[in-house]
Amino acid sequence: MNKNALTRVGTLVGFVLILLWCLLPVAWIISLSFKSQEAVTNGSPGFFPQSGGGAGWQNYVDVLQDEQFRRAILNSIGISLTATILSVALATLTAYAVARLEFQGKKFVLTTALVIAMFPVVSLVGPLFDMWRTFGIYDTWIGLIIPYMSFTLPLAIWTLSAFFREIPWEMEQAAQVDGATSWQAFRKVIVPLAAPGVFTAAILTFFFAWNDFVFGISLTSTERARPIPAALSFFVGADPFNRPASLLAAGAVVATVPVILLVLFFQRKIVAGLTAGAVKG
């Protein structure tokens, strides 16, 4: 009895701690985004804006009016979406083969994905920079999309293989018995069944692409292709000597909104996708 109560209290305390852990820094960056730039320049310690040191929505107005920042959002969305779609499309084919078909080299495919997922991206930056300037795709969308595939593709293959193992393949066999070829069975029966998994893989892949920083700062130099994380790190305010902390915070919040929306809508699926690798259904 007593022990049970203790466990319940412990769980409750843990529950509160988890929420604090996850949300406090987010609340902080939101709070910071409402401090006025003057207050920040002169020093305004504390979690909340001091009286008279609040900026209202001004920082958000400034950030959203900033052409460089808007371009960065556009770049990030465009580049991340393209990389996601390409990776997921190719990974779907691969994962189908891995989960469904018996073939030589299956281990090789999975090991390759595993090794490449662990690849130190910084190692690629130097040679890519040198190659891209020769090919003339330095500071372009395509110049980022290609290297993004180095980490989005393994991730997508990874997640999708796990999902595809759960699919009731008997239905495909049923279709084949009805006279459909392997390819037709794949397209007509399996694709609709696999769609939720594909979608989840796409969200996770998008997160990774959205998060990239190393390629973003190394392979761009203007707003032509610079994605959000890089743009944030170079953020320049009216005062060249102080990092415009509150303006940056507003930018950070804006950059985080898409992530939070995705999390809110697809929480269940994302958790399933993330843990797919560790649990064998």
Partner: peptide
Amino acid sequence: RTSILIPYGIITVV
């Protein structure tokens, strides 16, 4: 679960 995904999804730079 929603909360715990937020740090995961936030950009490292942020």
